[in-house]
């Protein structure tokens, strides 16, 4: 009797301590997850710093890698022109966070407000920052607006998978203004809108006649393998030939460093025409796509970042449609 009483009191004490332990550990868990969130929030900083391109033009140079949780999707170049009336922004990055941080940087360094935003094409690393510019006219070509309307949310969803937390609160926000090709004067700058295609169905290049800066969008990649996921290579090559005729002082590629010469144009042209010919030949020789994926890549392309990765992505995208055409 005595013993069983003692045992039951032992059980009670035991249960009490387990309960207390459980409560404490819950508290610890809650605190630690709170800490994790705090750390993450402070880490969602792209640490954007713009570099000058000639006088009055600036560019945020992104990574030349693919989308990752490490780079937060900051893989493309976004630029801005400082005019006497305010700032013109060309492309808004890969997320709402990027757009906000870019805008804060521009406004604090220039002391000016943003008067116009342009989107060069519908890929997510170039327009998903639009949300941070809802009070500013966002302009693009009709084809680009249509593509963002129809594919924007799907592309946004893809980026959530690829870069995670950086995307929080990001939604696809379409341009609010349709522009037509030709010259416009904004803040004293003579800006030429050039409608091209090939990287996607609708690509916009912008040439600032006042400063001689050409904003090529993703029609030009520099020291980074061109992404051909939505490409028509023949059209793209024609578009590069158009851009080569311009007498620019500076070329801002969609990805990779700024240049003053034709090097980036020739590099993009060389890779694309090689890719096109190589895949045509592979098809002609009866290669299956899995064999085309394993072809050797020429040494001269070793300067292009993520060459093998982007080549494979390109084959997976282009080869099936080339096969369909070949067999019809």
């Amino acid at each position: 009797m005595n013993i069983s009483n003692n045992l039951s009191s032992f059980r009670q004490i035991h249960t009490y301590y387990i309960r207390r332990l459980f409560k404490t550990s819950l508290l610890v868990l809650a605190l630690s997850s709170f800490n994790v969130q705090l750390i993450n929030a402070s880490e969602l900083d792209y640490k954007l710093v713009a570099e000058p391109v000639g006088k009055g033009t600036y560019v945020f140079i992104g990574s030349t890698k693919y989308f990752s949780k490490q780079n937060g999707g900051n893989i493309a170049n976004a630029a801005y022109i400082v005019t006497n009336r305010g700032v013109i922004v060309i492309d808004t990055g890969s997320s709402y966070q990027y757009g906000k941080q870019m805008r804060a940087y521009i406004e604090s360094t220039t002391g000016l407000s943003i008067i116009k935003v342009f989107n060069t094409h519908h890929h997510p690393d170039h327009f998903l920052g639009n949300q941070a510019f809802k009070d500013v006219p966002i302009a693009s070509l009709q084809g680009i607006v249509n593509a963002i309307d129809s594919q924007g949310e799907a592309l946004n969803g893809n980026l959530y998978t690829l870069v995670g937390d950086w995307m929080k609160e990001t939604e696809a926000y379409s341009p609010t203004e349709v522009v037509t090709p030709g010259k416009v004067t904004i803040g004293g700058h003579e800006i030429e809108i050039i409608a091209l295609d090939g990287h996607t169905d609708s690509d916009m290049a912008i040439y600032d006649h006042t400063t001689g800066v050409l904003f090529a969008g993703d029609l030009i990649f520099h020291d980074r393998t061109p992404a051909v996921a939505s490409a028509n290579i023949q059209n793209w090559l024609n578009s590069i030939s158009q851009l080569q005729k311009l007498d620019y002082k500076y070329l801002i590629a969609g990805h990779g460093p700024v240049t003053t010469d034709q090097h980036a144009m020739l590099q993009t042209h060389d890779y694309l025409s090689w890719l096109h010919d190589t895949l045509e030949n592979a098809l002609d020789e009866g290669l299956d796509i899995s064999e085309a994926l394993q072809l050797e890549l020429p040494e001269r392309f070793s300067a292009l970042d993520i060459l093998h990765e982007e080549y494979k992505r390109g084959v997976l995208q282009l080869y099936p449609s080339m096969e369909q055409a070949f067999f019809n």
């Binding site: 690393d125 893809n158 992404a227 996921a229 939505s230 992505r313």
Partner: peptide, 9 residues
């Protein structure tokens, strides 16, 4: 097989 990147579905 986790994501599609730039590739539109």
């Amino acid at each position: 097989a986790t994501g599609g990147g730039c590739t539109a579905p």
